[in-house]
Computed example of a mutant assay.
Amino acid sequence: MKKEDLVSESTTTTSKTLPLALGAAVGVGLIAAIGYTAWSANLKADDTQQAVSQLTDAVTTLVESQSRTQQFSSQEAFQEAVSASIRAHAEEARQAEVDARYAPYEAAAEETPEGQWIYGNLDARFTLVEYADTECGYCKRFHGTPKSIVDGSNGNVNWEYKHLTVLGETSVIQAQAAECIGEQLGNKGFWVAVQEIYDKTGSNGTGAGNLTKLAASVGADESAFQSCMAEGRHRDLIDQETQMARSQGITGTPATVVVDNQTGQMQLLAGAQPAQAFIAAMKGLVARAAEEGEG
């Protein structure tokens, strides 16, 4: 056989074998190789470097693609990787929802004196001590008022929440839910829980629905929450706060005691009063302190 024939046969064999080998790896590689052969023949000399760079990038992408395919050599491994990705995405979305619920209550201290739920500066001059029932429609509408006062007070006012369960067993159960969540998640968790209960309840005994699901939606562990509820762990505290309110002549909700922490003077405002009423009460307490030489 002539040398020219050997070269021709070798070239023919190679041209058949190479595309098959590439096709067995990734079909895209064959297309890229053929495309490059035709394309490079028409290149100008000063375009060669750019062409080589582009081909290098294409080959790198192909190799990385093959490497990723090899990582999932079995269907089981691939499915597990997909499941893990889906779980991670779901957890990320769930955490984003939890974070969104906490955002409005950033002003709640991480830690407070034992047995107190306080929103705002712990060293504020004034405290709005609110006695409320989560099933009370007026309480639900009023809830944003003390918050707005605290948020606009430049640290001079804080807000303390206490239970006065006047609308039956549903109120007590929801109060327990808030306490159980607060036990797990602290002061901020308590405030977020109360807000969520108000948002979910239809008021007047209709309830807030699935409280375990609600607890999970604010970041609480469901099993620990259910244990706390089953034990009735905070029921005595709720009863004590209700009795304390009644001993002060408070029978309806909401009722708010404005306290001047500097002098100890107090003023009770009954009902869902507007913000202006609380501002006037605080001004009155300051004036009284000045008259008595305590301001």
Rank of each mutant, 00 (worst) to 15 (best):
E4Q: 12
L6R: 14
E9S: 10
S10P: 00
T13W: 13
P19T: 03
P19I: 06
G23R: 02
A24P: 01
G27L: 09
G35L: 04
Y36I: 01
S40M: 04
S40A: 12
A41W: 04
L43Y: 06
K44S: 11
A45N: 12
Q50P: 00
Q50D: 13
T56L: 04
S67H: 05
T69S: 14
E76M: 04
A81E: 14
A84Y: 03
E91G: 00
E92P: 00
A93Q: 14
Q95I: 05
E111H: 10
T112N: 08
E114L: 02
G115R: 02
T127H: 03
V129T: 09
T134A: 12
T134C: 09
F142Q: 04
H143I: 00
G144D: 14
P146G: 08
S148L: 11
S153G: 10
N154H: 11
G155N: 09
N158G: 07
E160K: 08
E160I: 03
T165M: 15
V166Y: 04
L167G: 10
S171Y: 09
I173N: 13
A177W: 06
E179Y: 03
N187F: 12
G189N: 04
F190M: 04
W191L: 07
V194H: 09
G202W: 05
G207K: 03
A208W: 08
L211D: 02
K213C: 00
A215S: 12
S217P: 06
V218G: 05
V218P: 10
D221I: 01
A230K: 12
E231G: 01
L237D: 15
R246A: 11
V258L: 07
N261H: 08
M266C: 02
Q267S: 13
Q267A: 14
K283T: 01
E291D: 15
E292I: 01
G293Q: 08
E294M: 14
E294H: 12
